[in-house]
């Protein structure tokens, strides 16, 4: 250990002081070019682009912290200033170069007509399909994160009759390990927490469906504040009542996600605070979770 690294009194050793020194070390490292923020490509494929909007809803950390302190976002269709060929070239430079980057993908991969149902850009007069971009970057990235229901297993973009033949990312990157963050959209904490884990501690622990256990372990139903009503058999007859929503079609009993304890949009509310859970973080959403609301049946 070099002498300079040893911290001795009167140097402060409080957490704040250490954090401050680390922050200064990283900042000066970044400024001198000695330390580089890791690059992140945020690729929007066939979907609603709602996951990047959800990312903007992050509070701690927020988007500003994410792009100034955590990663260099080098590509984002929704957010980047550059456009046209200069934008799309960034993807090819990464695919053809040696630089390390993390790939986050939202939206499904449209397979129909060899991917022509979803173009991400145009290069040298040729269309660049989402399919092409996903494969080319997915094979190269140091880590791949599937962000949201569509990227994980097709989601709403692949809802029947699935005319665009949309599929989840794994289908086109079959040998690649992909961290999967289902949800419609992803909660900003699920993505930023996963990203932080990758940057600070390496890959987070994943379950059998490659979802980080830190977010996707508990059954919503087991943590639901309305669970006592379920146990006593007190059920809501209409939406807007404060009792268990099971008989209106709530998918909480089959959905593993931390919504009840985490809550959304600055931790103020969650779907069951308004209506039923529609199972958007569960595989097979939406088709296998439908119908979302039912009045005429006790159970499907």
């Amino acid at each position: 250990m070099k002498k300079l690294d040893i911290v001795l009194p009167p140097e402060s050793v409080t957490n704040e002081a250490i954090a401050q020194r680390l922050y200064q070390a990283v900042t000066s490292g970044l400024e001198s070019g000695h330390v580089k923020r890791k690059k992140l490509v945020w690729l929007e494929l066939n979907g609603c682009s709602g996951n990047i909007i959800s990312l903007l809803n992050g509070f701690q950390p927020d988007f500003e912290y994410a792009i100034t302190q955590m990663v260099d976002i080098v590509y984002s269709n929704s957010m980047m200033v550059e456009d046209g060929e200069k934008a799309i070239n960034r993807l090819f430079e990464l695919a053809e170069g040696d630089e390390d980057f993390i790939l986050g993908i939202e939206g499904a991969v449209a397979l129909k007509n060899e991917g022509m149902y979803h173009l991400v850009g145009n290069r040298n007069g040729q269309p660049v399909t989402g399919l092409q971009a996903a494969k080319m970057l997915g094979e190269k990235a140091s880590s791949v994160i599937a962000i949201g229901a569509c990227a994980v297993d097709g989601g709403p973009s692949a809802a029947r009759p699935n005319l665009s033949q949309s599929v989840g990312l794994q289908t086109v990157l079959d040998n690649r390990e992909i961290i999967k963050l289902p949800g419609c959209p992803v909660h900003p904490d699920w993505f930023l927490g996963t990203l932080a884990h990758l940057l600070l501690y390496g890959q987070p622990e994943l379950d059998q469906q490659q979802r980080p256990k830190m977010f996707y372990s508990d059954l919503l139903h087991d943590r639901c504040p309305r669970r006592p009503y379920f146990d006593k058999g007190v059920f809501s007859e209409t939406l807007g009542e404060p009792y268990c929503l099971f008989k209106l079609g709530c998918r909480g009993p089959v959905t593993r996600i931390d919504c009840p304890t985490r809550q959304w949009n600055g931790h103020v509310n969650w779907p069951i605070g308004a209506s039923t859970c529609i199972g958007c973080a569960q595989s097979g959403f939406p088709d296998r979770m439908a119908p979302f609301i039912s009045y005429n049946t006790t159970r499907e």
Partner: peptide, 8 residues
Amino acid sequence: GGKAPHNH
């Protein structure tokens, strides 16, 4: 509305 985007 429970959450945003995609409210309930």
